[in-house]
Computed example of a mutant assay.
Amino acid sequence: MRKISIVVPCYNEQETIYPFLEETQKIEQKLKKQLVFDYIFVNDGSKDDTLNVLREVASRFPNVHYLSFSRNFGKEAGLLAGLEAATGDFITVMDADLQDPPELLIDMYTKIQEGYDVVATRRADRKGEPVIRSFFSKMFYKIINAVSNTEMVDGVRDFRLMTRQVVDSILELEEVNRFSKGLFSWVGFDVTYISYENRERVAGETSWNFWSLLKYSMDGFINFSEAPLNLSMWAGGISFIASLLGIITIIIRKLTIGGSVSGWASLVCIILFIGGIQLLALGIIGKYVAKIFLETKKRPVYIIKEKK
């Protein structure tokens, strides 16, 4: 019988693990004649009692396994560790907070049987999400799709069912600075989407805030687009042309009207403008150089302290 591995990254999810298993095991019973379920929880350096809960469920259920990191390495590291540990013919990634509806696994498996390589889920709306976060999320997808050759669909979750071939292709990408939403799209294959209404967490609080999401989105731009570098180049070019026009204007005024341009305030503003563009360009270049620096150090993406 074919096996499905369910990868569940966890960070401070002590309250959601049992509800998650309870709901997912209902689906397991419905698909037990077609699939063997295998659970892989990844404890990403949780500060609460998540690890003890995982030890308990792993001792109760033989098909539940866990990996525990030596510290918090981030969700991307948790995803990678789970995918590397997964041995199923099909692999899915789910959040423990039940924002990813387990009942969709039935429809997702049906779609896989139709010949798709990936069945991804996407939110039909952003109901319950803060207005500001929703606005910036939509803007991110519009901008990244405008400047990147890798299409990223708005509202798509990490919750997706993939064949073994797709996961193996993702694992061949050995980069340290990972942006999974982009990597899932970059590898290609035949993908279809299932929409569902947005859901609230079943318990606990999200570890994502506006600033962490903003930082994550910046990683997406750096990893999948050269647009920031092009922006700094064009800004420098426009600034240079503007300065030449300014010099020509001053020369013509001197020859025709006489006297110099009065006012030190305008000169200071121009200097600050040029300096700001230079710092912006250096900052953008610095981000790319920093990514290169991290890649060349070849540090492991995560360190496992305990597993079962």
Rank of each mutant, 00 (worst) to 15 (best):
I4M: 07
P9L: 04
E15Y: 12
E15T: 03
L21S: 07
L21H: 11
Q25H: 09
Q25Y: 13
Y39P: 01
N43K: 04
G45M: 03
G45W: 05
L51K: 07
R55Y: 09
E56T: 05
S59A: 13
F61H: 14
H65M: 01
L67S: 09
S70K: 07
R71M: 10
F73Q: 05
K75N: 11
A77I: 00
A81S: 12
A86W: 01
G88E: 09
F90T: 05
I91K: 00
I91Y: 03
D100T: 02
P101K: 05
P102Y: 04
L105P: 01
I106T: 13
M108T: 06
T110F: 10
K111H: 11
I112W: 10
I112F: 06
Y116Q: 05
V118D: 10
V118P: 11
A120L: 04
T121Q: 07
R122H: 13
R123I: 03
D125A: 05
R126D: 14
K127L: 07
S134C: 05
S137G: 04
S137A: 04
S137W: 13
Y141V: 08
I144R: 03
N145L: 06
N149T: 12
T150W: 13
T150A: 00
G155K: 09
V156P: 08
V156W: 09
V156S: 04
R157G: 02
R157H: 12
L161V: 13
M162W: 05
T163R: 08
V167T: 05
S169D: 15
S169F: 01
L173F: 08
L183C: 00
F184D: 09
F184C: 01
S185E: 15
F189D: 11
V202N: 00
E205K: 06
E205C: 00
S207V: 12
W208K: 05
N209R: 03
W211Q: 09
L214D: 10
S217Q: 11
M218S: 08
D219Y: 03
D219W: 02
G220P: 01
I222E: 06
I222V: 09
N223G: 00
F224R: 00
A227E: 10
M233N: 14
I241F: 04
A242Q: 08
L244I: 15
G246K: 02
G246T: 02
I248T: 09
T249S: 12
V261D: 13
S262R: 03
G263E: 02
G263T: 00
A265S: 06
A265R: 02
A265G: 08
V268W: 03
V268Q: 10
F273T: 01
G276E: 00
A281S: 12
K287E: 14
V289A: 07
E295L: 06
E295M: 05
T296C: 04
T296I: 14
K297R: 14
K298D: 11
R299I: 05
P300Y: 15
P300G: 11
Y302S: 11
I304W: 02
K305D: 15
E306D: 15
K307G: 11
